[in-house]
Design a protein around this nucleic acid. Structure first.
Lengths: 238, 238
DNA sequence: GAGTGGTCTAGACCACGGT
DNA sequence: CCGTGGTCTAGACCACTCC
């Protein structure tokens, strides 16, 4: 059970790219298919992956080039880790796990997690602070099927993703996020210690594993005056 | 000069998806290649695009399915392709180019565009609408150095990025975006025909070319009740 | 076993950029 | 003109899911 060919090509090209400088040219697709002894389709699968992830860019009629990445903020475009971000900015992150309950998901959540009939989900409520000031209030839903007998205890002091990965062998490989501006309602304003009506960010995130199965769905509310959502977009349509 | 086959398949499949419900199953790839009379490769190119954009998901051995949406409202996303996104959701996009002026940039903008001393920048003010309703009010700054003698005329009816690319040979390969929630001030509320104080999204975008030179900086304000910012995050730790 | 998506081959022609 | 990436074909076998 070998790794797919195009995955091997990706790994090798990544190494080669690390030894190159931004805007250096890579060998042409026809040269690469000889070097790796694979078909052009396989080369293009690999290059497409590298392009999507922003390591290279291609110019029709000219060639394939190394992107100038890592030049600005290093963490954007990657999966978001609140604690790491806060620490990076020199502040102290705190996570208050407020409750963990097994619940009957409403229709919207069941849809997001692809739950059938009466399948249940854990609801984890958290409040996240930086330097003891509230930043984000969030509710995370986890399919019971994938995480049987989850307890609040095992989540204390450990990043959620680590528990999902190490204990339950569920690794998130991609996340879709929708960001919306909303005015805070009464309950949210109490948690975030901010006035009712203040602008804040509502973030919906669905994380999937390598088999495209949803492993987590989170709805967060973040203080608008303190929180900035950053992302990176690549060529494709530009 | 036809649209590529797989693009036509994408357009058609998007229409079909709009008439389906989340988690509905699409025909198999082998059924689709008969329906469209193309090769499997072409079908897979189309499906891959739809999957990347989060419209569908595929499960090995099971099939291809319609993704669930986070929110009920028709979602418009992706700053950099407003017109396409709007068209995609079956609405009519309009762009009102309100003014184009050569200005002395303030410090923040000069910083973002790497402008020296007295170098100037064009300020392009635009209002973007879907079905004649205002969605986004934006100010775009373009270095005069890169786009000498830009005129409002040449921007009419053409996507901005096309003009930058075709006439000035400036191709954006990457964009950094910061998204923040703000309460609308008086002027913004007039443009967007929304109440003062309503939550809205403020989006700062810097686009760079293949040489890592900033070619554009845009500050946008988008109606919070209509606009959703969508992005995808990867786990780079694999 | 039948049907699905995932990987892979060996060709072909087109569109674009530069000489 | 040649070399580049972009599109496309018609096959093949593998890995997974469900019955």
């Amino acid at each position: 059970m070998e790794k797919p060919l195009y995955r091997q090509v990706i790994s090798d090209l990544e190494k080669r790219i690390n030894h190159l400088k931004p805007n250096d040219r890579l060998p042409s697709e026809r040269q690469l298919l000889i070097q790796y002894n694979v078909s052009r389709n396989t080369i293009r699968l690999a290059l497409q992956d590298l392009e999507e992830r922003g390591l290279i860019y291609r110019l029709h009629g000219k060639g394939t080039f190394v992107s100038s990445r890592y030049l600005d903020q290093p963490n954007i475009g990657e999966m978001y880790s609140f604690s790491e971000e806060v620490r990076r900015s020199g502040q102290k992150p705190t996570t208050l796990n407020q409750s963990l309950k097994l619940v009957e998901p409403n229709q919207k959540i069941a849809e997001q997690l692809n739950l059938q009939n009466a399948e249940k989900a854990y609801e984890l409520v958290r409040l996240r602070l930086a330097n003891d000031q509230p930043y984000i209030y969030s509710k995370t839903y986890l399919p019971e099927k994938l995480f049987p007998s989850l307890t609040l205890d095992e989540l204390q002091g450990v990043p959620l993703y680590d528990v999902l990965k190490d204990k339950y062998k569920q690794l998130g490989v991609m996340a879709f996020e929708d960001v919306q501006a909303v005015n805070l309602d009464k309950q949210e304003s109490e948690y975030l210690q901010e006035e009712v009506g203040s602008a804040s960010l509502k973030i919906y995130r669905k994380t999937i594993n390598e088999k495209n199965v949803p492993i987590e769905f989170t709805i967060s509310v973040a203080r608008g005056d303190k929180f900035i959502y950053r992302s990176k977009q690549y060529n494709h349509l530009l």
